[in-house]
Design a protein around this nucleic acid. Structure first.
Length: 981
DNA sequence: GTGGTCTCCTA
DNA sequence: GTAGGAGACCACA
């Protein structure tokens, strides 16, 4: 070996475990032999070897070896008997793959190296050293942190799964120390997997910090007494020996007397037929074809090799495709006896009817083998005709992303009757699971043709499309110019029926109503770092998964839809839920414009400010530490500095909440004040200015949040990815972020928000004369409350008095407790109690409302908004008083918060038509923030739009409910959200 | 990587 | 005292 040569060292043992956990667990040969890890391994080897031929790729191996662990027993066990002693037996379906992977290595004609007494890592270290000394380069194919100590000038690592190189910079980025300090770092942190003890309480971050300060482990241990933090110092002193042993365990030996010389590792061109024989035996068809193409061998000529399996082979039988651990028929049968009561058989007759449907659905087994894959237009047309005939169709799409604004359609599924479902693949890629990806897989209808055909059905007014969270599918198809209608949504139906009784996700609903566990998405497409997009999923597996979803959706609809009528909830669904699907869909599709420059400038400002505060903090603390760690911070404040007024959190940690820190600051302590400032700056930076630009859609250049219609117990929407319902407003610094939300040139943002909507709802529901009067007269409601309670005239009222009344008003809405009010106002509990007592004396209707609500929720298990939406509290009868009180407060709040939520939902449903009727089609509703709607409008339309918007919002409760108090809306327009609000 | 904890942003 | 989502840290596998 000489300069310019390049040695590839594959960490075979590491790869096996990683691939096993990375790849979908059900990858099996047709006879049930588990081969997922072997498959990944072969693909990787092939790809790496191919890079040797493709000289356009920077790195090309001239030498190549695959290294394995020989057995668990190595010299390390003698150093420390517990080393790796906690290792459990490998999973049974992994065991046969160990031998297969060695056989695979040989089939590739690659050296397969292992040695008794040493780990693969030691062999790798040794070969890396030999290569380095020969002037050659080495690349270690692994991402194991244990190998990072070897990284240097001539030695790099390559993570084959993430396709990422790991060099010195990457090690520093990940661990905070250069490769040569990795040994010391690991000596401190230990490794729970391998049973390397390390020093308890020292994690990677702390370890890196210590090594930066003291240089190396020996120095650190010598000077441990200088460490300021009590706990840390004591732990390090007490565990110095463990640290030293750990260092010996993690340090790799690069002097192993290796058998094969470097020159024996020269990479040979693959022996096509031999390799093909092996690949055929394992049924790796794609790779077989690829190897045949590359080597010029004729795969058809080659006979599959006989492959020996050396351990408890076929783990669980071959029928796993039907779903691991799921036996649909048996399950449904077993559960039948217990499930007959589901749906409330003892309720009045319409409900009993619905319950009967539920019972039938649960008893009907789900048989995936009947699902059809539609691969030609003729079949598709037949299914579409069938759906038209039925008038209803369960529908679902499969895509490449959870974000419907970025997702690409991969296929869609239809269900026309329970058990009768089909999947139409249109965008599956060839060579699923392979590292190289080909074009489209064969046997799919061309995308445009399929879309054209299905578009007719999806927009056919005579066919009801039933989806689970169909807003997603609606949005996706909306990008393709298809506005799906009419629709029903099982998630929303369930939400109307059972909000508060558990999730409305399809898996939960299927289990609850059908007694069936659907194929988990993870099992089809993997999860975590090894997740693949759906277009890479094998079409047969995709069919089982996707058709099942459409089937289940249709079955759920048959169970749930009748319950709406039976339980008197049709109008809630029809007026507050169903119409919102496309309204919200359009809002999400529009998105909002966010100015990248403003955010980036703010990010810089925050960063600089935080850095300078950081220095002051270290100065005041007398040491450097991780300010973001509540644990470390608590130790500094209450341990080292011994500040008074410490409180503990639920888990016994020092609390370092802003409340506590501000109390300390008020006593004249400088450090807590600085911490609060630092927290604010870093919060604004990380959560907003740094994160938001990443949500700017590359196509539309706008930010598209996602609204969840069925995620809250009260009827509110929630917003995520990004959450645009919590953009800062309270502080000057925070408000700056709002200036980045802007209108397009020539347009304005209009913000319209309800004033005091929840207190108005309360005044209406509880029928409080003084509150009604005050709202009718447009009086300051908190001042009025204060005046009633404390007898202070509204004129010239001290702001502190008003502040207390305001807190009480909010407390009422939240289901007041003396404890909570005392906390909020920082007053003694007794004082808070007397306020509440006083409040109830002045406003007896409030107490009546609260008592009535508590009785109602206890009796029925749910409460209702003024529009009849229900919020369920199944835990209300909990024997745990904490639980019970919590549920009572939530139940008191729900009708208030929920009615307000219903009102703005009604406004949103009516808004588009009202604007269109006024000739304001180009005024677009963009966002909802609970009591506020944000619009974007051409400058010239603003003046006309505001009265229309106000009118719709202020009259949104009518005619269903005639409010006893007027609703009031403030609206304003400006170039950005800060000024418009 | 996942999940729990703590903290903090909104209405 | 109500309703949410999210980032950082840290222990666990």
């Amino acid at each position: 070996m000489k300069k310019g040569d390049h040695l590839f060292l594959v960490d075979g043992s590491g790869y096996i475990f990683r691939a096993y956990h990375a790849l979908p667990p059900l990858t099996r040969k047709s006879d049930g032999l588990p081969i997922g890890a072997v498959s990944g391994f072969c693909n990787m080897l092939w790809k790496l070897m191919q890079s040797a031929r493709d000289t356009s790729v920077g790195v090309t191996p001239s030498h190549f070896a695959v290294i394995f662990d020989h057995s668990a027993k190595t010299f390390r066990s003698e150093l420390y008997p517990e080393y790796k002693a906690n290792r459990s037996e490998p999973p049974e379906d992994l065991v046969p793959q160990f031998g297969l992977i060695r056989q695979a290595t040989k089939a590739f004609d690659l050296p397969c190296i292992e040695m008794q007494g040493f780990e693969a890592d030691d062999l790798i270290a040794t070969y890396a050293r030999l290569a380095r000394e020969a002037g050659a380069d080495a690349t270690i194919i692994s991402s194991d942190k244990d190998l990072m100590q070897l990284v240097g000038d001539k030695v790099t690592m390559y993570d084959p799964m993430k396709d990422r190189e790991i060099r010195v910079a990457e090690v520093i980025e990940k661990w905070g120390v250069p490769p040569e300090k990795m040994i010391d770092l690991q000596a401190l942190t230990g490794d729970s997997v391998d049973n390397v003890p390390g020093v308890p309480g020292i994690g990677p971050k702390t370890a890196a910090q210590l090594l930066e300060e003291y240089g190396d482990l020996d120095t650190l241990l010598e000077r441990a007494s200088e460490i300021k933090q009590n706990k840390r110092r004591e732990s390090i002193i007490a565990n110095a020996d463990k640290a030293r042993i750990s260092r010996d365990l993690v340090r790799l030996r690069d002097d192993v007397p290796v058998g094969e010389a470097l020159d024996e590792l020269v990479l040979q061109p693959p022996d096509g037929p031999r390799l093909i024989a092996f690949l055929k035996a394992l049924e790796f068809t794609t790779l077989t074809r690829r190897v045949a193409e590359a080597t010029g061998a004729d795969a058809a000529e080659v006979e599959a090799a006989s492959v020996e399996v050396d351990a408890p082979a076929r783990a669980r039988g071959p029928d796993l495709d039907a779903g691991a651990g799921q036996t649909p028929a048996g399950q449904a049968g077993d559960d039948k006896g217990e499930q007959t009561a589901v749906g409330g058989a003892d309720e009045p007759s319409p409900a009993a009817l619905a319950a009967k449907r539920a019972e039938a659905a649960a008893a009907e087994a789900i048989d995936r083998s009947a699902y059809v894959t539609i691969r030609d237009m003729e079949t598709l047309r037949a299914w579409i005709a069938e759906a038209r005939e039925a008038g209803i169709v369960g529908f679902d799409t499969e895509t490449t992303s959870l974000d419907p604004m970025q997702a690409e359609l991969v296929g869609f599924s239809l269900a026309t009757a329970p058990g009768r479902a089909a999947y139409v693949p249109v965008g599956h890629k060839q060579g699923a699971g392979d590292l190289l990806g080909g074009g489209l897989a064969e046997g799919q209808i061309p995308f445009d043709e399929a879309l054209q055909a299905i578009g007719g059905l999806l927009t056919d007014p005579a066919v009801l499309k039933i989806g689970q969270n169909i807003k997603y599918d609606w949005l996706l198809l909306y990008q393709h110019g298809i506005a799906v209608a009419p629709v029903d949504d099982t998630m929303l139906i369930s939400y109307v029926l059972d909000a508060g009784k558990g999730g409305q996700g399809m898996d939960a609903l299927s289990e609850r109503w059908l007694g069936h566990v659907p194929i988990p998405y993870k099992e089809v497409a993997g999860s975590g770092r090894n997740a693949v997009t759906f277009d890479m999923v094998d079409i047969d597996r995709a069919t089982a998964y996707a058709a099942e979803d459409a089937d289940i959706t249709l079955r759920l609809w048959r169970v749930l839809k009748p319950r709406l009528a039976a339980e008197g909830l049709v109008s809630v669904y029809e007026r507050l839920e169903r119409p919102l699907i496309d309204v919200i869909g359009r809002m999400e599709a529009r998105g909002i414009s966010v100015d990248r420059q403003i955010l980036s400038r703010l990010s810089g400002d925050f960063s600089q400010a935080a850095a300078s505060v950081e220095e002051e903090i270290y100065e005041l603390a007398g040491e450097r530490f991780n300010i973001a760690s509540p644990k470390q911070l608590g130790d500094i404040l209450f341990g080292k500095m011994g500040l008074e007024g410490a409180r503990k959190t639920a888990t016994g940690q020092w609390s370092t909440s802003a409340q506590i820190l501000e109390d300390l600051a008020a006593e004249g302590h400088e450090l807590p004040r600085k911490i609060v400032g630092w927290r604010q700056l870093t919060k604004l930076k990380s959560t907003y200015t740094d994160a938001l630009p990443g949500f700017i859609n590359p196509e539309t250049k706008r930010v598209h949040t996602s609204y969840a219609l069925a995620s809250t117990s009260t009827g509110r929407l929630s917003s995520s990815d990004p959450n645009l319902q919590n953009i800062p407003i309270r502080t000057v610094e925070g408000r700056k972020i709002r200036t980045a939300f802007i209108a397009e040139p020539g347009r304005k943002l209009i913000s319209a928000d309800y004033s005091q909507i929840e207190l108005r709802v309360l005044a209406h529901i509880a029928d409080i004369p003084q509150l009604r009067q005050a709202f009718a007269d447009g009086i300051d409601i908190h001042a009025m409350t204060a005046s009633e309670m404390f007898g202070v005239p509204v004129e010239g009222m001290p702001s502190e008095v008003r502040r207390r009344a305001k807190a009480i008003n909010f407390g009422i809405i939240y289901g007041i407790s003396a404890f909570g009010l005392a906390n909020q106002l920082s007053i003694p509990r007794e004082e808070a109690s007397s306020y509440i007592k006083k409040y109830f004396e002045r406003f007896p209707g409030i107490r009546d409302y609260m008592d009535k609500t508590k009785a109602q929720v206890r009796e029925n298990g749910y409460v209702e908004t003024i529009f009849g939406r229900r919020a369920h509290y199944p835990e209300i009868r909990s024997p745990n008083p904490h639980q019970r009180s919590f549920n009572e407060r939530a139940a008191i709040n729900a009708p208030i918060q929920g009615s307000a939520a219903d009102i703005i939902r009604r406004a949103m449903v009516r808004m588009e038509k009202a604007l269109a009727d006024a000739g304001l089609d180009s005024v677009q509703m963009l966002l909802q923030v609970h009591d506020e709607l944000i619009f974007e409008a051409p400058k010239n339309d603003v003046a006309a739009a505001i009265p229309v918007i106000r009118d719709v919002m202020e009259n949104a409760a009518m005619p269903a409910v005639s409010m006893a108090v007027p609703l009031h809306v403030d609206a304003r327009a400006a170039d950005n959200w800060d000024e418009a609000h």
